[in-house]
């Protein structure tokens, strides 16, 4: 067992306590939805919700906010898995792979799902933290062996996944299992 590490936990908590903001469009979605529900006993006041929705208002959008929205679209577009893959079968689910490799220049995700082709799935650096590499791929149910290839030479198993015990090639591999229920 580890001794309590107040500093480490404190660091985690500081990260997590940062404010998270949600676009006020959420308010409108909620109000629109409840406008279709029966009003509480006052009656006839769904109109009030509609009035709230339809009244003129000023939407403040800072330059940073606009940038965030634009950048979010870019990230969504870039992170679409079919940028690298053929259309996935209907039963496929997206799986995210993450590895922390601070000194790497390139990292590839290589495994049973991409013919062990190191060129097929280059991992992307997380924009907020250059030491974190991620890839998202669709997988159909099954058990897949895989590993990360760092800088084209070093094989690294996924520290977050079970190891492939039947490893005959002298370098570590990991296993991801995709279920159906």
């Amino acid at each position: 067992m580890f001794e309590a590490d107040e500093e480490l936990v404190g660091r985690v908590v500081r990260h997590l306590r940062r404010p998270v903001t949600v676009d006020s469009a959420l308010d409108e979605r909620v109000m629109e939805q409840i406008a279709h529900l029966p009003a509480h006993r006052g009656g006839g006041t769904a109109r009030a919700a509609w009035r709230w929705l339809t009244r003129a208002r000023t939407v403040r959008l800072s330059p940073l906010g606009a940038l965030a929205i634009a950048a979010a679209f870019v990230v969504v577009a870039l992170s679409r898995p079919d940028r690298f893959y053929r259309a996935a079968p209907a039963s496929a689910r997206e799986f995210g792979f993450v590895v922390v490799a601070p000194r790497a220049a390139t990292v590839s995700l290589v495994g049973d799902f991409n013919d062990w082709d190191a060129a097929r799935t280059p991992m992307q650096r997380a924009r907020r933290d250059a030491s974190v590499w991620t890839a998202v791929i669709p997988l159909t149910p099954g058990r897949y062996r895989y590993a990360f290839l760092v800088d084209g030479v070093s094989w690294v198993a996924d520290p977050a996944a079970p190891v492939a015990r039947d490893d005959e090639f002298g370098t570590p591999s990991s296993v991801v299992t995709v279920g159906g229920s």
Binding site: R11, T21, V76, R127, R128
Partner: peptide, 23 residues
């Protein structure tokens, strides 16, 4: 995604490295 872009929350100075590792 918004956090990854680093412009939606707080100021850049408040963001520190390792946030994604924590998450």
């Amino acid at each position: 995604d918004a956090a990854l872009n680093g412009v939606a929350h707080a100021s850049a100075a408040e963001q520190t490295e390792g946030e994604d590792v924590v998450r």
